[in-house]
Design a protein around this nucleic acid. Structure first.
Lengths: 244, 244
DNA sequence: ATTTATTGTCTAAATAGTAGACAATAAATA
DNA sequence: TATTTATTGTCTACTATTTAGACAATAAAT
């Protein structure tokens, strides 16, 4: 499972990632499903190497799952309840998968290490969903984008982690001008508005939304976009402060 | 130093506390000075027991230092750079204090434990400075309130931690209505304004500040305060949502 | 009685946010 | 080709909020 042994990591400390994407007017989260009987879903997670900055650890974990190096990333909260252990979950999983676990089973030492109580640092990431090729790891059966309004049941407190990530995203969206990380290079005003609506789960007035966004002076207007629809063609825009 | 042995704690994970107080129109931070030659200051800190919620660990650490149980408290950021070890600091301290360390010296095992790289969770606290009786621990020479604009040199990245705490405090102040935690039970409008000015390090217009605060509808107006000054006496106010 | 410094509040001006309206346009329809 | 339809871009009026200026009320000193 790891290229490093468990001694190489800081014990009892993990990173959980909420990877946001946007597709078909829906805000989505990238969630792997574990390759065991019992339907277990868990946020992409990992540990911190002894000589690794926590932000870089988060980047490493995110790159493995998305293939993207230069990813927008924000640390938002630490989850440190006393009940945060993988033990109940792993034991239930083992009881449901007796015959199958051999190849993937952890040895006793690893099992002890990974089933202790963990404190987890929550990071959320914003990606252009079209640039991501989701990567399973050895433990996964699959990895997919789920609408945030229709997430699968996840282990431990992972629903709470997503909830808190979304809350922080909403607070930061206007302040830090980060919505554009969820869109392709160019987009129409309507697409940007629909993205806002999916994040805040409420409608915005079209005229005033456009005014507000244009007054930020962070968009470059490009040529018109051919839609083929029976109406006026919208302009395309590009975010100016794009690092790239 | 501890009533628990080092195995009772989560290794390599600590809590650093920025305890804010307010006195004589200055925002202050409670900082202990270590009882060793060399003038070492360090934020109040501690570790997390294996069966202890991180928020409760922070409360425990704060109660030890302030004597206050019901303290306002907010987790604001994790500090996880690779350079975060006490080793350089402890070794320098040891070289400066050869004769003196015996009684307080950690044994070898404890020394190894405490000098590894640490990831630290930052909490800030807001207290009524008049209710606090600062408590030294075994390692401290003194513990005092320092104006945030005139902090002593602190070890490691503790200045950065204070900086980030202040930044978060500013962002949260209006949103969460927490300034009142820094004042006594009753206060005048001018006192509240001067508190805001010390936190944001900028002046506020008196008329508009008063209007804004009163429009929040969270203050109860009490009797007038006798000042003895040659002018109109100000009203006293009390914060309504006070949990007490 | 007058002066002084500060407090509480009012009003006007400037700014920002909200709601309604309409011309411009690209393609479908008649 | 003229008309209809759906959507886009923008304008203006209206409302709410923020900022700036003004002044009466007051407690004690002069």
């Amino acid at each position: 499972m790891y290229s490093h042994s468990e001694q190489d990591y800081i014990p009892q400390l993990s990173i959980d990632c909420v990877i946001f994407g946007y597709q078909e007017t829906q805000l989505k989260v990238l969630v792997p499903k574990l390759d065991f009987r019992g339907d277990f879903w868990a946020l992409p997670a990992g540990f911190i190497l002894q000589d690794e900055d926590i932000d870089l650890a988060a980047r490493r974990i995110l790159e493995v799952r998305t293939g993207i190096k230069d990813i927008y990333l924000d640390q938002f909260r630490v989850f440190g309840g006393t009940g945060r252990s993988n033990r109940p979950f792993l034991e239930r999983m083992m009881s449901l998968n007796e015959g199958k676990l051999g190849s993937k089973m952890l040895n006793r030492k690893e099992f002890e290490w990974v089933t202790r109580r963990f404190v987890s640092i929550g990071y959320y990431a914003l990606v252009d969903i079209n640039k991501v090729v989701p990567q399973k790891n050895d433990m996964d059966e699959s990895i997919d984008w789920y609408p945030i309004k229709d997430l699968p049941p996840m282990i431990m407190d992972h629903h709470e982690i997503v909830e808190k990530a979304l809350e922080t995203l909403r607070l930061n969206l206007d302040q830090k001008l980060i919505a554009f990380n969820l869109l392709p290079e160019t987009f129409t005003m309507r697409e940007l508005q629909e993205l806002y609506e999916s994040i805040f789960d409420k409608p915005f007035a079209r005229n005033n939304f456009q005014k507000k966004i244009l007054n930020l002076n962070v968009l470059e207007r490009l040529e018109k976009k051919f839609t083929g629809a029976a109406n006026k063609a919208p302009y395309l825009y590009r975010f100016l402060n794009a690092k790239g």
